[in-house]
């Protein structure tokens, strides 16, 4: 069963974008447009892995929702347009797990959700894609029961794609996330790694190349 994420954001356009991105990455999403509705729904269902909550909401605002969410031990990521230190400190000391200032990049939100889930243990250790099983803890990949040896960098690269499955990653995003640098020109390193992963796992059709954008690991749900 996929992890459920609660999204509370009054701006429909933003709410939809978050929901779409999360769904594509394999999460189940429940979204609300105002605080009162969200608060009411928590009584009946609260098995969320994480909640993404806007601070400024009609009805109950983010800070008012925080204790309720904490009651059910749901970690909270605040979204806000206010980037002042005071607001950040207030949000975090009140018990929010993380804090994101608008405008933000979806990838960052996904990474942060991932981190929180990992910390909270509500995190799948083994991921299965077709006949490939990835054990995150042991860093072992098997294909049809046979272990396939991946170099550490190749494993990280695969994990990055898997974590963002059904979602395109640009070469520079991959480069920045894996090699910790952001420079153009060396994107061929990424290409080389991807092609080796494809060959080793038989993922020629699973990892798609998107012209001018990058790569996407596609899994039919």
């Amino acid at each position: 069963m996929n992890t459920k994420i609660l999204v509370i954001e009054d701006e429909e356009a933003i709410n939809d974008v978050i929901a779409m991105s999360l769904r594509a990455t394999g999460y189940e999403v429940v979204s609300f447009l105002d605080g009162d509705d969200a608060s009411a729904s928590l009584e009946t269902g609260h098995d969320y892995g994480c909640a993404v909550v806007d601070v400024m909401l009609p009805g109950k605002d983010g800070f008012a929702l925080l204790p309720e969410l904490q009651k059910y031990e749901i970690p909270v990521i605040f979204l806000t347009a206010r980037g002042g230190l005071q607001d950040k400190v207030r949000g975090l000391t009140k018990g929010a797990e993380d804090y994101m200032v608008k405008p933000f990049e979806m990838l960052e939100l996904l990474v942060r959700i991932d981190k929180i889930l990992k910390r909270r243990g509500s995190f799948q250790e083994k991921i299965t894609i077709y006949d490939v099983v990835i054990d995150r803890e042991k860093r072992v990949v098997t294909k049809g029961g046979q272990e396939v040896y991946l170099k550490p960098m190749e494993f990280d690269c695969l994990m990055m794609l898997v974590r963002n499955k059904n979602r395109a990653l640009t070469r520079s995003q991959l480069l920045g996330a894996l090699w910790g640098m952001e420079f153009e020109g060396e994107t061929r390193t990424v290409d080389a790694h991807i092609s080796r992963i494809r060959k080793k796992l038989g993922f020629e059709d699973v990892i798609k190349t998107l012209p001018r954008i990058g790569y996407r690991l596609e899994v039919e749900e």
Binding site: A13, V17, E105, M106, L107, R167, R216
Partner: peptide, 9 residues
């Protein structure tokens, strides 16, 4: 966000 979604999903 929406442009990102259009581009990547």
């Amino acid at each position: 966000g929406n442009v990102e979604v259009l581009l990547t999903l």
